[in-house]
């Protein structure tokens, strides 16, 4: 309950001050170059890694990337760089829907 309240307060503050959500809520920020590369900031924990699918679990969301010959070029706390042929990127909010 307290957490929900703090989230709603933060939402209100970020809306009023026009602050970016990725900074306020520490949400993942994804930058893509075509379908060959993806730069992910705040990616979260790695849940699944195969050459066809990579899945990250974040505090607020689950991030699923599907494709072919996927590989992780850089993996550290700040940034994750994915390369390969990316077909699909899915983000589901945690607790609401389950990611298949």
């Amino acid at each position: 309950m307290e957490e929900k309240l703090s989230v709603s307060v933060l939402k209100g503050i970020s809306y009023a001050l026009e602050l970016p959500e990725d900074i306020v809520f520490n949400m993942p920020r994804i930058t893509m170059i075509g379908n060959v590369k993806a730069y992910i900031e705040n990616a979260g924990e790695l849940m699944k890694y195969t050459t066809e699918e990579i899945r990250f679990v974040h505090k607020y969301a689950v991030l699923k990337i599907q494709g072919e010959s996927l590989r992780i070029e850089v993996f550290n706390k700040e940034e994750t760089v994915l390369a390969g042929k990316i077909d699909q990127v899915q983000i589901r909010q945690r607790g609401q829907d389950h990611v298949d």
């Binding site: 924990e45 790695l46 699944k48 890694y49 590989r71 992780i72 070029e73 850089v74 993996f75 550290n76």
Partner: peptide
């Protein structure tokens, strides 16, 4: 549990590169 190992490394601030399954 390779994923767990990778997460553990990241959590301890060890940068990983050129990951390949």
């Amino acid at each position: 549990s390779v994923e767990n190992f990778l997460n553990l490394c990241i959590a301890h601030g060890i940068p990983l590169a050129d990951l390949c399954r």
